[in-house]
């Protein structure tokens, strides 16, 4: 009997153990290791024990490194532009398409396709379309008698090119989340507004958008986090070039480790990127906490009114 009880008490641990072991050894440990490695002068041919401990020198080097600062700003610019465009387009489309139409399910299926296929393949097909001679954009321009655009060989155009590709791939994400939020809005508020004679615009600005705001802000932050992680599409399209014009931080980490073999410096960069994302995530948690507290207060107030 006592054996059986003991077995029962151990069961939950046995169910949890495999997941716990894998997460500790393959996730937590590597992240800790990375923080340690960022204080080392370390090349891939060395074991980590042989690498020299150099304190904060990697970070100091990064601070003085013009190329790093440049790619830091490219990252910020890319994330800000892409997320802003996608939010406006995605929410706008959701507002337009929030109607009872036939085939909405098919439409949504079609819209999520760009997100499902491999980023490598997305990069591949945009690279083909941007191609100076065989690409569809330049061929179309030329057939109308215009000059071709140097999509991937000019530093301004290549930045625009990666922004377009990202907007194509990720606007549907915002659209689907915004649509889901819109369809779960309380009908009573909208009907009340209709009875009061609100115009379509007034309904959107005064009722729909404010009520959707909590979801929209979470969506914005999720997308912002993902925008800092984009790598494969840009790697295939421009490999960071020309110059450093499209070298976002994730790509720079990859190249520092792969081409320049500076693992310590790559680790320091990873650390900085992680801290930046951590700040966004904490902001997101803080926001949702504040929001929950507000809703709870309102509910309490409403219940008091009912009594």
């Amino acid at each position: 009997m006592s054996v059986a009880i003991k077995a029962n008490r151990l069961t939950p641990y046995m169910f949890l153990a495999p997941a716990g072991i894998i997460l500790i050894f393959a996730l937590l440990y590597p992240i800790g290791y990375m923080i340690y490695a960022s204080f080392l002068d370390w090349s891939p041919s060395q074991r980590i024990g042989q690498a020299e401990f150099i304190g904060f020198r990697n970070y100091v080097n990064l601070w003085g490194d013009e190329a790093f600062r440049e790619s830091f700003w490219v990252t910020i610019r890319f994330a800000a532009i892409v997320v802003t465009l996608e939010m406006f387009l995605g929410v706008g489309l959701a507002l337009l398409l929030d109607r009872n139409i036939k085939g909405m399910a098919v439409l949504r299926t079609v819209f999520i396709l760009p997100m499902m296929i491999a980023p490598i393949v997305v990069g591949l097909m945009w690279r083909y379309m941007y191609h100076p001679t065989v690409g569809i954009f330049n061929r179309t321009l030329k057939s109308f008698g215009f000059e071709g655009i140097p999509w991937l060989s000019d530093s301004t155009w290549s930045f625009i090119a990666i922004v377009i590709a990202d907007v194509w791939q990720w606007t549907p994400f915002i659209f689907i989340l915004a649509l889901a939020a819109m369809q779960s809005l309380p009908r009573s508020a909208l009907e009340a507004a209709e009875i009061d004679g609100a115009s379509e615009w007034q309904k959107i600005i005064l009722i729909k958008l404010p009520l959707m705001m909590p979801v929209l802000i979470v969506t914005l932050l999720l997308r912002l986090i993902d925008a800092f992680k984009v790598l494969e599409v840009i790697l295939v399209l421009t490999n960071g070039g020309p110059g450093l014009s499209t070298e976002i931080l994730a790509l720079r980490i990859f190249r520092t480790a792969q081409e320049f073999q500076e693992l310590g410096e790559a680790a320091a960069m990873s650390n900085l990127l992680l801290m930046m994302l951590m700040a966004i995530t904490i902001g997101m948690f803080a926001y949702s906490r504040v929001q929950e507290a507000r809703v709870a207060r309102q509910r309490a107030a409403a219940e008091k009114d009912d009594d």
Partner: peptide, 19 residues
Amino acid sequence: TLLMRMVPPAVLLVPVFGI
């Protein structure tokens, strides 16, 4: 889950390769 979503694969590159 959310914290994990935050970690870019690029950040795991160096430690995972080393370990």
